[in-house]
Write a protein that binds this DNA or RNA. Sequence first.
DNA 1: ACAAAAAATCAACACGCTGTTTAGTAACAA
DNA 2: TTGTTACTAAACAGCGTGTTGATTTTTTGT
Lengths: 189, 189
Amino acid sequence: MKKEKVDRRVQYTKMILRQSLIELLEKNPISKITIKSICEKADINRTTFYAHYTDQYDLLAQIKQELFDDVSVYLTNFTFHENESESVQLLNKIFEYIKQNSKICSVLLNDTTDTAFHEQVMVIVQKLCMEQLTKKSFNQNIINYIISFAATGSMGLIRKWLDTGMKEPTYTMAEIILKLTNQGLTAFV
Amino acid sequence: MKKEKVDRRVQYTKMILRQSLIELLEKNPISKITIKSICEKADINRTTFYAHYTDQYDLLAQIKQELFDDVSVYLTNFTFHENESESVQLLNKIFEYIKQNSKICSVLLNDTTDTAFHEQVMVIVQKLCMEQLTKKSFNQNIINYIISFAATGSMGLIRKWLDTGMKEPTYTMAEIILKLTNQGLTAFV
DNA sequence: ACAAAAAATCAACACGCTGTTTAGTAACAA
DNA sequence: TTGTTACTAAACAGCGTGTTGATTTTTTGT
């Protein structure tokens, strides 16, 4: 399907509005950011803003969606090493992506689970569960609780890693998540 | 220290404003709730609102703080059974509290970790870690990651339990959290 | 090169909400 | 009963929003 060419003015407008919101979010919560302030920073007319977005929350949602798409592409274009767990490689890629894009990730991973990473980690954890919980018949609700625990926990861990300067190697972090998901504290005893 | 008696008018004003915001939050996010709408619902003058709160975010923060204090008191006034893990009993109390106050908890546990429960669960998990990770010398950062994983994961699990109608008994949920924290998926194999 | 279309700008407008001030009223506590 | 405190009501200036219509600029297609 032929990709429709987007007018260069539209590309610029969206790029500069997104960049402006990201920069404002570094210092303020979304609730304190006005459309007026975004447009002033971007040097874009307010009517132009309304031509593309409903409000600042819509703009933020579209930034997140763009990130989601970018992460999906990033993880899809990937060749696994045969001699390693696929999960640990995928988690490693996620941490690598976050490290490469730490500025925008710091802003977007704000006490929220509706991010691209949460969904990707959900998929990984679900796969692990399916691999390990096949011998017993479990209540689907319990499985969902387990998945929620591991996926949300991973986001909390990722948040912490971001907030404390990302000192540890990405592969180490991927291993920690896998260990905690599979064996909890006993993996570290 | 003698507890200062609060004027009944102030007690009523704060109670009705808090209740009004909670009810509005059932249907709308905080960003869409105006001070005007809170005051209309409460039938309280706007100047009175400003006498007590800075804005709707301040009101919400104080509601959360009140909940935090209430939870702390609830968990402190508690006698442990000797023949059971203290952690599972505390977790059970947390789930009981949430069940008894599910209306306000549904509203307040909104993709956020800055809640009373997160902090309480942090304390429990920290204790578990201290109990089990004493034989080895771990990087404090790694311990913090483990705590973040388990505490945030617990919040995700609690959120899920709330969202799906709280069908399972509170004690079952407490046990699931403990199992996942201690042994991860292997506890369910 | 030129014309049509698209995107952005500009100015204006009505509206809604905010945050403050002042005077008056009602409730509370001593 | 009285003084104090808390709340109400009205008014106000200011700010931001969302929309409209005309104009300008840029882009695209012929």
